[in-house]
Design a protein around this nucleic acid. Structure first.
Lengths: 198, 198
DNA sequence: GTATTATGTAAGTATGTACTTACTAAGTAG
DNA sequence: CTACTTAGTAAGTACATACTTACATAATAC
């Protein structure tokens, strides 16, 4: 379900614990994710859990730190055709968060509630997808393709905010309603191109 | 912080308990909202809490049921000028969720995680704001002002999804970035008017 | 063959939490 | 003045949880 980087093969016990911890953090929240259940789901004993991590907090902190979406694959390579580039990006991003709805609906709010889980290593892994989007927009601005006066983070919010909101509303309603991605990209680019052309 | 309807004056003890329960449900999650702390924040003893509600679950269920945004005030009264009407609506809605960020970021996900808190009384109070938006769009469709072929719920997602996503991302980043509401309304209405006019 | 490593089982400690019971004090209604 | 309601304090029950300790077992390293 959630994307964990490296280490997965290195130590299978640790990997299983991290994965189980992430899943239960999303499903039940920080308090609801008990060490007993994490160990059960990882198919190890609770004692083994505490032999690998000195506390539940440490385990979950490390698990969150290992979250890593496949950033490289969702970033467009070309910037010649802006509309195509952003359609590519938003399509990939949409697929990513649709496959990881639990992350958006449950894990992200839990990380907002428990900032200590994000660790102190600067940008936490789970934010890399947003950061990648910001970086791409910045690149477009420097290349003179997008208006330079709007902050890139603000542009990212305008671009992917609708996707996030859609998934959250979908969770609340129990139905994921379709979204017109082309219209989204069109609306986003309108008035944001640097050359003034439509 | 959160909008509770009636009853507030009727029984101040209950009202204080409900308010404290909601606040802590948002702040700490279902498990984290302990009866002791709810009672403390309501400035009553824990025993008093259990004299009014037979369980923590019942208290929180009732608290969620009493959530009531000022729906009447955010719905436009006229539909002559669609752009003005939707600007009015989206402006009010924006103000509402900005004043209640905690609801969107913390309470809504917690209600998704614990559907039993929503009660069995059909549409729960906290969804009324979304429902009101849906109803307004439906009215516009019936009046022949908006395309009738797109489901109103889907239109609502396109309209307020960006606001929701923005607040969630704001929570994750610690910064609420500005959003161009006029552009949002313009983009929303583009291609959705029934008469084909721009 | 022995030491080391990774795991399991069983049991236990300390603490927090939902919820109860018994008794008391103050205010209000008649 | 009395009855009733609403609240508080103090204490306790039953259970779950994070985390520990002690001991046994199987696999691997040398």
């Amino acid at each position: 379900m959630y994307l964990l980087s490296s280490l997965v093969d290195a130590d299978p016990t640790k990997a299983a614990l991290l994965r189980a911890g992430l899943e239960l953090l999303a499903e039940k929240g920080y308090k609801g994710a008990t060490t007993r259940e994490i160990a059960n789901r990882a198919e190890v004993s609770e004692v083994t859990l505490f032999r690998h991590y000195k506390s539940k907090a440490e385990l979950l902190r490390e698990a969150v730190g290992h979250l890593s979406p496949p950033v490289e694959e969702i970033i467009p390579t070309q910037t010649d055709d802006l509309e195509a580039a952003f359609t590519y990006f938003i399509g990939n991003f949409q697929a990513l968060i649709e496959a990881n709805q639990g992350f958006v609906i449950r894990l992200l709010p839990e990380l907002i509630r428990h900032p200590e889980l994000r660790g102190d290593t600067g940008a936490p892994g789970f934010m890399r997808a947003f950061a990648a989007g910001t970086a791409f927009i910045q690149r477009c601005q420097k290349a003179g393709l997008l208006r330079p006066d709007e902050p890139p983070q603000q542009m990212v919010v305008a671009l992917i905010g609708p996707l996030i909101g859609r998934v959250l509303l979908g969770g609340a309603w129990g139905v994921l309603l379709p979204l017109d991605l082309e219209a989204l990209v069109r609306g986003f680019l309108q008035g944001r191109r640097a050359d003034g052309q439509r």
